[in-house]
Structure formats: structure tokens, C-alpha cells
Design a binder for these strands. Structure first.
Lengths: 217, 217
DNA sequence: CTCGAACCGCACCCCTCGTCGGGGGCGATG
DNA sequence: CATCGCCCCCGACGAGGGGTGCGGTTCGAG
């Protein structure tokens, strides 16, 4: 795996392609084996010159980088993809990750960092630009915070109440809950009343949201 | 900012401290200015030797690395913190991020990588070990997937229905929704009925969950 | 043993929710 | 213009959700 890493550069701007090829080709263990000027040209380019890593622009005239990434990842060879773009809007990032990209960098990254990213991705490591990493971290942290608060609130409940709360969180009706727990509907309602008071909320949908936040999907 | 980076090493194991200090002190632009053998010793160590970056173990006898991180980040100087541990359980990672850590690495990371992480964190860039980055990426991707599906479903709704659905997602009752939109309760109910059929769900809590997934908090 | 506390279970009553049917407005199609 | 479709609005009614009170159980403290 530690041989030279073969790279395909995909960008509609010839100048950008030339710049990337120039800065990468010949760098430690990297060789640029081809270029493509649009997403729809990528499969042919990969057929002609198999690559380990594809450097992919997003904004391209015919087929954009997201769908191109999806197609690349669907191939039997399945090279890794690094999406390389000017703006790091959350939309772009999430779509790219969902399409199967292993890396997401801004075009103004330092050349050394891009080369390093190519090698890392070829080795199976994911790479994100610092700003994106930061946003992902903050997102996970806030999510974990809500998670924690919700779990703390649910900890107040007794075992039965907890079961009922979880069932509510799955959108079940009282009758379904009663059948599932072998209870009378009246009992389920009583449990729900206690759950509402203990959690300090007014109706079952808020219970469902709390359970959802707690990660009990 | 590009001077030498001052590092404080915190670990209850003297051997680990020695190893880290040895591998870091003298590396490019890094100087280890102190060590601490437990979380409760960190403030004093920072008072004696101000540091830019704290390398923090999690498992320590008296005060663990998470709370120590929280205290470090609460200081006026507020050095950056890299949590350095043996296991990367999701619990640990999320708590560390929530406590304000800017980096999370495994102890078996290559020395060069740790040094690099110290410099990056000192420069304000976050650093995560590859496995954690991967999990965060997958998490974001799946979340984005649910997001997308939910938004697609909600796109079927008319403007009014959409408003009502969002209100349901906030746990509001029909009367509240009616007051908020200056409608009769009967009208709100009618909208909800159409929302239910269009979304293919049976009750309002499932609507709330869908709206929640769509990110319309 | 008894008492209190907490949990679980249930029946009754009232209010909200969801369905059904109907009416009016507005643009597109014939 | 007719009428078809879509959206918005509403009233009435059955069904389901939520509140209250009460009995039964367990368990530890007094």
C-alpha cells in the first residue's frame, strides 16, 4: 500500500488542474496519472489510468463533483475521493460526505497539506479542513449536550415510566403501548401523566422529542 | 504566535509523562514547560509555568482529564487542550469535546503526529485522530441523510400545512397553533389531517419527529 | 408489625385530537 | 364560461389523549 499514490485531478478550470498537477506530481510518493475537465469524464479517465485518489472539484458545468463522487465510489475499484472546493458551505460538505468522499479541503490549503492529505486518504485515513473539523466537533458537542440533559431528565423516571416514554418517542399510540406492555389503556395513561409531570412538559410530543434527543431511537 | 509552543504534560503514569516529554521537548518549536500527575495539580502547574497547550490524559486517580479540561478552559489564559488517551470510546470523545478540548488523539499515535498536533492546536486548528474523524463524518452523513429525506417529505406540504407541521414539531397544542396563526381550531385540525396523510404517518408525534429530523428546531 | 414511600395497576370524567363533510376563492384547462 | 383542481377555512362528531382518585404491592425504617 505504501507505493506511489496515483492521483486523478478533476476540475473544469485548466489553470487549477495545471496548478494541482504541478504541485503534486513529483511530490513524495505521488504521481498524477490523469486529469478530467468535468464529472462525466471521470469514469473514462479512471478506465484509462486507474487511480488511488481522485481530487474532485464541486462546481463543474455538466456533472458536478458530488454526483461524480457518488459514481466513483460505486465503481468496483472505488478510489478514494478528496473534494476540493473554494467554499466550505455546510451543504456542500454534507453532500460530499454522503456521496462517499473521504476528504474535504479548501482550495486555498497549503500545497504541502494537500499532498499530505492525498497520502493520508490513500492510507485509509479521512481528512477534513480545519474549519470543517471544528464545525463537526461543535455540532457533536452541542448534540452531546442535549443528549446528556435529556438523559438526565429521563433518569427521573421509574422503569415502567421509562418504557412508556420510549414507546411514545417511537410515535406509538396509547393502545399500541398497552398491547405491547400487556397493560390496560388506563394504566398507560396514568404512566404518561406521571411522565409528563416528572419531565415538566405538557404533552406527549414533547416527551417524544426529549426521548429522541436522548438518543433512544 | 509562531514562537515556540509551551506544553504541559498531564498523566498519572510517570513513564508516559517521561516518554511524551522526551519525544516532544526539543522537537521543532516545542518546549515542555511542566508536568502534572493528576487533574487537580494542573492549575498550580499552569500558574508556575504558563503553557499554550496541555496534553491531558483522561483516566487519573483524583480528578479526571475531562473535568480538568473544563477547568483549564475556564481559566483567563485558557490554553488549548489535547486529550490523549488509550481508548477512543464515543463517551470519552464527546465529553472531551464538550469540555472544550481542541484535540483528541490516541496514545499509540506516531510521535511526529503528536508533535504536529501540538503545533496545529497552538495555531488554533482542531485535531482529531483518524478513527474519530471517520466516526464524526459518518455520523454527520447519516444525519444529513435523514435530514434530506425528512425535508423531501415535508416539501409535499402546502405553505399553511408546513407552518402547522413546524408548530407541531415544537410540541404545541392545536389551540396554541390556532391562536398563533389566527385560525379556528377546526381549521388547524383539518390542516393536520392533510399533513398526516401527505406524510403517511398516523399521529402528530411522528410528524414532530419528522420535523425534528428535518432540522427545523 | 406498622407505617410511609414509592411503584404499579385500574376506572371514571373531561378535554383535545383527528375524521368527515361542506363551503368559498383562485388559477389553469378545455 | 364552465369546471376541474388545489388551497384555505370552518362546524359537528366519534375516538383517543390527559387528569384524578383509589386500591394493591413491595421494601426499608422505625
Amino acid at each position: 500500500m505504501s507505493g506511489t499514490v496515483r492521483v486523478l485531478v478533476v476540475d473544469d478550470d485548466a489553470l487549477v488542474r495545471a496548478g494541482l498537477s504541478l504541485m503534486l506530481d513529483g511530490a513524495d510518493g505521488i504521481v498524477v496519472v490523469g486529469e478530467a475537465d468535468d464529472g462525466d469524464a471521470v469514469p473514462a479517465a479512471l478506465d484509462a489510468h486507474p487511480a488511488d485518489v481522485v481530487l474532485m472539484d464541486i462546481r463543474m458545468p455538466r456533472v458536478n463533483g458530488i454526483t461524480a463522487t457518488r459514481r466513483v465510489r460505486a465503481r468496483p475499484s472505488a478510489p478514494e475521493v478528496i473534494v476540493l472546493t473554494t467554499f466550505d458551505s455546510d451543504e456542500n460538505v454534507l453532500h460530499a460526505l454522503r456521496a462517499g468522499a473521504s476528504g474535504f479541503l479548501l482550495k486555498d490549503s497549503l500545497p504541502a497539506r494537500i499532498a499530505e492529505a492525498v497520502r493520508a486518504v490513500a492510507a485509509g485515513e479521512p481528512i477534513l479542513s480545519p474549519g470543517i473539523t471544528r464545525r463537526l466537533m461543535e455540532r457533536a458537542a452541542t448534540e452531546a449536550g442535549a443528549h446528556e440533559r435529556a438523559r438526565a431528565a429521563l433518569a427521573e423516571l421509574s422503569a415502567r415510566e421509562h418504557e412508556v416514554a420510549v414507546a411514545i418517542g417511537q410515535g406509538r399510540t396509547n393502545a399500541e403501548i398497552a398491547a405491547h406492555l400487556h397493560l390496560s389503556i388506563a394504566t398507560v395513561k396514568a404512566h404518561i401523566t406521571r411522565v409528563l409531570t416528572k419531565l415538566g412538559v405538557g404533552n406527549r410530543t414533547q416527551v417524544a422529542l426529549l426521548v429522541h434527543d436522548a438518543g433512544l431511537c
